[in-house]
Design a protein around this nucleic acid. Sequence first.
DNA 1: AATGAATGAGTATTCATTCAT
DNA 2: GATGAATGAATACTCATTCAT
Lengths: 204, 204, 204, 204
Amino acid sequence: MSKLDEKKKKKREALFAAAFNLFNTKGIRQTSISEIANEADVAKGTFYLYFKDKFDLRDKLIAAKASQILMQATREVGLDMDHLNMYPLEDAIVQIVDVILDRMSREPELLRFITKNLSWGAFRQISLEDESAEDMNFHEGYQKLIDASGRRFENPDLMLFMIVELVGGCCYQVILYEKPVTLEELKPRLYESIRDIIANQEIS
Amino acid sequence: MSKLDEKKKKKREALFAAAFNLFNTKGIRQTSISEIANEADVAKGTFYLYFKDKFDLRDKLIAAKASQILMQATREVGLDMDHLNMYPLEDAIVQIVDVILDRMSREPELLRFITKNLSWGAFRQISLEDESAEDMNFHEGYQKLIDASGRRFENPDLMLFMIVELVGGCCYQVILYEKPVTLEELKPRLYESIRDIIANQEIS
Amino acid sequence: MSKLDEKKKKKREALFAAAFNLFNTKGIRQTSISEIANEADVAKGTFYLYFKDKFDLRDKLIAAKASQILMQATREVGLDMDHLNMYPLEDAIVQIVDVILDRMSREPELLRFITKNLSWGAFRQISLEDESAEDMNFHEGYQKLIDASGRRFENPDLMLFMIVELVGGCCYQVILYEKPVTLEELKPRLYESIRDIIANQEIS
Amino acid sequence: MSKLDEKKKKKREALFAAAFNLFNTKGIRQTSISEIANEADVAKGTFYLYFKDKFDLRDKLIAAKASQILMQATREVGLDMDHLNMYPLEDAIVQIVDVILDRMSREPELLRFITKNLSWGAFRQISLEDESAEDMNFHEGYQKLIDASGRRFENPDLMLFMIVELVGGCCYQVILYEKPVTLEELKPRLYESIRDIIANQEIS
DNA sequence: AATGAATGAGTATTCATTCAT
DNA sequence: GATGAATGAATACTCATTCAT
């Protein structure tokens, strides 16, 4: 990478970091582009060299954060993309969820930021880096996982969707407010429900 | 009610109606207070006699709409608050959910408006009018329903919470975008999962 | 006085008191008629039954306060309007000033309120209640004092004017900020200068 | 100075000039920021690049005007900062006052604008440009003058303060309304009193 | 590529005043 | 006389975006 490209990347990341802090501290609406540029130590005009507007930045920031979380989770679980069938499907999913929930509970700003902004459509497009091949989006990774399990399901997309919505919905409230239960109390019930959702859709 | 109070109520409702339309058409952020007042045929200053600002109005509007939906659903299901044990608990809940989902699918703006804005805390406080007694909030109604079933659950709050988050999360995507499945495809799986959540928490 | 008149007077005084507090606390410009009415426990519309607007109230309030201060000062000094020549002129004036300065230093809000708002024209018109005769304005009282002294001055008006401006200008800074000296340090110099001003203008 | 800086200075001065005119014509309260910007031929937003609000502009404008007046007065009197002892102290002060009063009587808007707004604290800080050295504030210049006179005074600060308040208070009324006397009638009495104040405080 | 001065449309909010009750 | 709901003109201030340097 040339020196110039490095400098550009640095600016881009400075803008990301500044925006993330400000969005968490003051909310997106209350954060102005001036402030972001200021906090990132670049001129206001420079912002427009990297992003179309505040919402463009937000979308790219969410994608980057979500991708990073999922990648870290799969890595931490030791999910080997080349030997996916080593785990029962349920265990793989529950473990990934578990790692993510723990991370979220350590970084609630991350949770707050992502949850309110991540749509199902965007979620499917999140990219994962694959060692063997090109980058791969999350949805492709999920399909690989299903295929490797050798089992058949009525509608794997619906299955994933329900799991994501259940987890997403519950963890927001529970981690941020510990209402109506703590995360540790939620977990066993949540994982049971995930297993139920999977079981319900399997075609024996 | 005095004539003056009636006039005040009318203005308040005109503001509610105008705001609801505009919020759905243009989004909350793009809607100015001037527009709301205009559409409601009151002076701009009058807005401030009834609401602190746009967001105050929004919060009060959500509460009103949500309350109205729940009331209508329980009434339509024929849930008799004085003979609650006539139905098995699961059936009562699933039927209420079913009525609500159908209504939402007929009025997607209502769904769009409410879903993104209703927090668990606010949800619990939604008030229901009870014929026999005073007004009652939704949470009290739910507890009555549990009690009347004669069954015992580990944590009824958690149970309701998980159901609400699952239903809320899923129906938003499904009704508005029919992704990843249509509402009719979702329903059987969703209701099964609701029954699973209830079964999982019952103390036999 | 009829009961009705008493009630009216009470309202007027409540408005005065409320306004005085608010003007001192928040400044005249930042104080709205709503607030004054609120603080005085009368309806907004009622304000307009007593005063034309905020500045009408202010003017009447200043006149009332200034009159009260001068009256109290002359009374305290024991200046007998019917035997004015008992004191040398200089002593009478210096003593009145002294009493006023002490009062102002005890009630700096009063000082703050009056100083910035009292013009020379208004000052001359301030009314004093005279036991023997009708009410008398301050300026007439001053002329009586000069006459009673039996002495002659080039321009008694200019003399009073210079004294008032010197005292008014100095005491504001000194009492409120103790800059550049304390009130006690200022007094001897100030009184000397007053005596000089009088001496300078006497026609021997 | 770069071209950009020049342009900025021009805008700042255009805003000053526009504001001074409008403040004098309509009063500060009646002057809106829109009007100032309009009159200065800049966009409304530009105003906020130079001043926090209307009152920030006013303060900076007063300081600039006051400084300019004092500078011109000392220059006109021919007060040579390097040979200050050429004049008796009293004469120097009286002459400066005289020049200022004449200027004020030619530009009553200037007087009107400054008098009501200049505090003792601000007055002391007014800066004077000194040919020989760095800029110097007025207070330092005054101290130099006292030192050069070779005479000793109890409290030179108090002395200056009393003179300023006496002059300031009297000239406002007299110049603007010719009440209670004309400026020419006031002058001899005023200068006598200034000399008295100085004499009173000298330590022989 | 980077800067930051300039722009001006857009919006929230206040508040004196009126008038029907 | 007293009330306070309604009015809408008036204004301050923000901020995304542009563009000359």
